Computed example of a mutant assay.
Amino acid sequence: MEKMTRLPTKVKLIMFLAILVVAIALILLQLPEKQQGKVVLLSNTELLDTYQLSATLMQPNGVGPHPAAVLLHGCYGVSNKHDQWGKTLNEWGYTTLIVDSFSALGIKDICTAEDKIWQHFNQRRPKDALVALNYLQSLSEVNPNNIVLFGWSYGGAITLKVLEQNSAIERKSYSAGIAFYPSCWQYQQYLMSGKQYKANVPIRILMGEDDEWTQPIHCQQLLNNNKDKSHQQLLTFTGAYHNFDDQQQRYQLLKNVRKESKQQPWGSVRVSYNKQAHLDAQAAVREFLNNNLSKHKPE
């Protein structure tokens, strides 16, 4: 009888430990991966607008100078998605700089912020992109003629602004641009004031066909103004929502967020990771970079 009473206790202990291990594993899977790279402090030195912001520099293997990429986050700030893209670009031989426009100001996100906050960052974030470009061009391990600007969502709209032909600064020019699901409607409303859009470098916009937060139709209308389809082009991915390239983004209905409408500026949108769209986007980005960046090293 003594042995019979001990056996269930041991079984219960084993089952408890097994469940505990599984629970810990599930928690660890949902935690954001620790960002790798070196945190650097960038400075805007304009006389009337001096400020600092942080960024994460991630280096590829091998001897440089390497091509490079600046990564601009969306309204939710820097996330694991940007770190993952940084690693992917490192594997392709790119130095990457993930720019954090919010944390130095004590801001986590501005997705539900009032208009004056957005207006402030509409003016400031293009400067952030140029400060980042200037920093990378100062590094001996970076090819100053091969630097690409990446942006996601709100960062994608800023990418469009920075690469607009009329706003280009010749000595601080990016070589190409990638905009993931930007709000072309927001760009037209807040940054462009109805002007005809034309980028000064090759640019690709990548979006999910079913994106409800930033709708592809607005980007298509924006690019229809330009006759050179190979220079600036919209690529869409079947069955994909906003944030389709974020591996930690579960299917979710976000409520009470800003939408692309003056009549109904707040509403609900679906977001979700889409593995196939992510893989297709990676392939499209790599092909675009291979076709649009010079292969030679600077003399």
Score class of each variant (00 low, 15 high):
residue 238 T to H: 13
residue 1 M to A: 11
residue 265 P to K: 07
residue 52 Q to C: 04
residue 187 Y to M: 02
residue 195 K to N: 10
residue 72 L to R: 03
residue 22 V to H: 05
residue 250 R to Y: 10
residue 60 P to K: 05
residue 204 R to I: 14
residue 204 R to N: 10
residue 241 Y to I: 01
residue 99 V to T: 10
residue 82 H to V: 00
residue 148 V to K: 04
residue 245 D to P: 03
residue 93 G to T: 05
residue 176 A to C: 08
residue 137 Q to D: 04
residue 59 Q to Y: 11
residue 82 H to N: 05
residue 50 T to R: 12
residue 139 L to N: 06
residue 204 R to W: 05
residue 163 L to G: 03
residue 280 D to Q: 14
residue 115 D to G: 01
residue 299 E to T: 00
residue 194 G to T: 05
residue 297 K to N: 11
residue 66 H to T: 04
residue 127 K to F: 01
residue 40 V to T: 07
residue 95 T to K: 05
residue 276 Q to F: 06
residue 173 S to K: 14
residue 181 Y to E: 04
residue 153 S to I: 05
residue 270 R to C: 00
residue 189 Q to H: 08
residue 289 L to D: 02
residue 91 E to K: 14
residue 191 L to K: 01
residue 220 Q to L: 09
residue 197 Y to S: 03
residue 153 S to Q: 07
residue 283 A to E: 10
residue 232 Q to D: 06
residue 25 A to L: 13
residue 5 T to P: 00
residue 52 Q to H: 11
residue 34 K to P: 02
residue 85 W to L: 13
residue 6 R to K: 13
residue 47 L to W: 01
residue 263 Q to G: 00
residue 266 W to Q: 09
residue 147 I to G: 01
residue 62 G to R: 08
residue 10 K to D: 00
residue 35 Q to L: 01
residue 193 S to F: 11
residue 229 K to Q: 14
residue 23 A to V: 15
residue 166 N to A: 15
residue 52 Q to V: 06
residue 284 A to M: 04
residue 72 L to A: 06
residue 215 Q to E: 11
residue 175 S to K: 12
residue 252 Q to H: 12
residue 53 L to Q: 10
residue 15 M to G: 08
residue 272 S to Q: 15
residue 276 Q to C: 00
residue 9 T to Q: 14
residue 150 F to Y: 15
residue 69 A to D: 01
residue 296 H to V: 06
residue 163 L to F: 04
residue 93 G to F: 10
residue 243 N to K: 05
residue 9 T to M: 14
residue 191 L to M: 15
residue 207 M to C: 03
residue 151 G to F: 05
residue 141 E to W: 02
residue 48 L to A: 08
residue 198 K to Q: 13
residue 92 W to C: 07
residue 253 L to D: 03
residue 103 S to N: 11
residue 71 L to F: 12
residue 261 S to E: 03
residue 103 S to A: 11
residue 91 E to Q: 14
residue 277 A to F: 02
residue 30 Q to D: 03
residue 107 I to W: 08
residue 141 E to Q: 14
residue 257 V to M: 07
residue 125 R to F: 02
residue 78 V to I: 11
residue 25 A to F: 12
residue 180 F to K: 00
residue 2 E to T: 08
residue 247 Q to E: 13
residue 161 K to G: 02
residue 282 Q to A: 03
residue 299 E to M: 01
